[in-house]
Design a protein around this nucleic acid. Structure first.
Lengths: 369, 369
DNA sequence: CGCAGTCATGACAGCGCAGTCACCCGACGA
DNA sequence: TCGTCGGGTGACTGCGCTGTCATGACTGCG
């Protein structure tokens, strides 16, 4: 193989030795400077940097990875979805990785894909990644997530996972779901319906469990669960079904998109939100404050989860022998807007009787922009 | 450097030579088989694949990239945003890249970042990417996008860009904006206000231009433009300002999020949508059909744009000497839902007088799930 | 003054693959 | 019969970097 990259005529890009020659040092010293190693005199360092700059030198990462056995790249297995939650997590991961000096290699696994997560992990390992992030895992991922590099699972119940080099980070979704349900019960609703996410998702199961716990804690009836697919369309479909029942006063939806679809269907069916039916969402998407009525929801600290998780992953990468740390759970927040209110007065319901709450929250604050 | 990756005890992962020995061939032949080269007998091919499988062999991409000068990786420069449009584009790019056998390396440039796009491109080149995708470029990116690898610019006006190895792909945003504006004019609105995106974005400028063209074509007055930042919050703020005016009957918002915020503010100000004011959005986000009222908007074929663009990029990568192809523009669609209607009857407006349109579109179709 | 310890640098090897070229073999035409 | 040609294979080399080790120069201390 001759050294003739670039198109004919244009000189090949300079290598470490070229810089070394230009600076009057050895190639190894160039390497030292570029890696910020100790024991390089300030003078030499200056000359090397100057020469590198002058020649337009760019480090060759393939060579570096081959020689060092580390690629300074983190692989991400994401679901192929533009949903706000996963997208935000990905964003946070990228930022945290870049700050830590790692590049990101992303593979999406459309649900029901060929190899699924295992295949994606394989291809990342082939790519030589130093660590792997699995975002919002679903069921089949749980299996043999064997990997010679550390794995960070985002959005799984913290501390649950198998796999010897696995770290989990996420929020306590169960507690959040309990908080959302309790909010509705506190308002006086006799019980709360649940519009769940797909059962294969850990996130969906956690929220379901939290909802059950909250109802069980007060000895309330647990209405049958409707399952959606996170989309507003599925929320709309569920809303049509729920509106047909006659005991509906409160619904906890497993994410905001479904909540919006749900409200759309309820409104169409002549039910007013929140006067007739209260709805709580989950995620606090940016639109939540601006739909009508502004959505009461649970805010997830996606960015904090991603940062914290990645910090741990990088630690595990750079200290292979150390104990695997455990993620601390991130604080969360119930954002009360206007889609929840006490139930309508009825013979069998509580004594509370309110008019509709005025709008509150961001919808009224002057936007930052 | 001794060959002792993996943790002590565990054997190092097998290399090409190990497979070669196991199959009784040379390392070069293993390489041939794995690269699908010609001139390998079926018997040898079978033996090699079998041995590779048995040993759990995994190709080392760093070595491959170093030896071949190609990394089979495409770098993506994205904006650090969870907005639906950019996120969808990224999704499409990933899928197309994977189908073409390329991995993806993603770098986000938060707006107003240190090096901005140029810095991101540098770090990707360092990474040895074979091609670069710049998604939804903003102003400063336009400059010296010099790169020794081909560059695909997504969301820029097709065919506009400088840079000798640059390909552009996208939709004809101006035409779309014209269509949206014409829709409102056709309904009888005397003129249409525009809620624009940040001026630094090409996408925002195109939409603004299309809006101007549509008004100019009919000799209509061009109301002053309000600029938002794509967020619902900024749309809400704009809505408060617009509601204070008294000639408002129609608004074209540069994206759906802003449209939702806008509607929220108008509603709060006592203006009904669409009876008093019509609103058109842009993007057709999944929620558009489920907000109240369902949003009339312009659907962007993000996936098609990403696929087509990536196809061209891969072509340019694999045929370095060939002419740079031009992207064909993708078909688009105006989705009429319920946020638009003829203007309210007034002395100075047209003869049309409708009641609110019934809901139409997806909001009524049974969801697929 | 001599020796250990630290700082600063270079020589050299080798990471695991793909490129190049040489080679062998059988088929086929002269 | 021999030369030629293309299929099929292997030996060797080098991609550009980092790890290891060797080597000086200089410092401080007994």
């Amino acid at each position: 193989m001759t050294r003739a990259r670039g198109r004919e005529g244009s000189p090949a890009s300079p290598r470490g030795v070229d810089v070394a020659r230009a600076a009057g040092v050895s190639q190894k010293t160039v390497s030292r400077v570029l890696n910020g190693e100790r024991y390089v005199s300030v003078d030499v360092r200056r000359r090397v940097l100057e020469a590198a700059d002058r020649l337009g030198y760019r480090l060759n990462n393939a060579a570096r990875a081959l020689a060092s056995g580390r690629s300074r790249t983190i692989g991400v297995v994401a679901l192929g979805t533009a949903l706000y939650g996963p997208a935000s997590l990905l964003l946070g991961v990228e930022r945290a990785a870049r700050n830590a000096g790692y590049a990101l290699s992303v593979v999406n696994t459309l649900e029901g894909d060929q190899g699924g997560v295992a295949g994606a992990v394989q291809s990342l390992l082939e790519r030589g990644v130093d660590g792997i992030v699995v975002s919002e895992p679903i069921d089949e991922d749980a299996g043999p997530l064997t990997s010679e590099v550390p794995v960070l699972v985002l959005g799984a119940p913290a501390g649950t996972r198998t796999g010897e080099r696995t770290i989990a980070a996420g929020v306590d979704s169960e507690a959040l779901a309990r908080a959302a349900t309790d909010h509705l019960l506190d308002l006086g609703h006799p019980t709360v319906h649940h519009l769940a996410g797909p059962e294969r998702w850990f996130a969906a199961r956690d929220r379901l469990a939290g909802w059950r716990q909250a109802l069980a804690a007060r000895g309330r009836e647990q209405p049958s669960v409707t399952e959606g697919d996170w989309s507003a369309a599925s929320g709309y479909a569920a809303g049509r079904r729920l509106a047909a029942g006659n005991d509906l006063t409160a619904v906890f939806a497993a994410n905001d998109d479904m909540a919006v679809g749900l409200i759309s269907a309820l409104t169409e069916a002549g039910l007013r939100v929140p006067q007739d039916v209260s709805v709580v969402g989950f995620d606090d998407i940016p639109l939540a404050a601006y739909v009508r009525p502004p959505l009461t929801t649970v805010r997830q600290p996606f960015d904090a989860v991603a940062c914290e998780g990645l910090r741990l992953l990088v630690h595990a990468i750079e200290n292979p022998e150390a104990e695997l740390p455990t993620a601390q759970e991130q604080p969360v927040e119930l954002v009360v807007r206007s889609s929840t209110a006490p139930p309508p007065a009825r013979a069998d319901s509580g004594p509370l009787r309110h008019t509709v709450q005025p709008l509150t929250g961001e919808a009224h604050a002057p936007p930052a922009a």
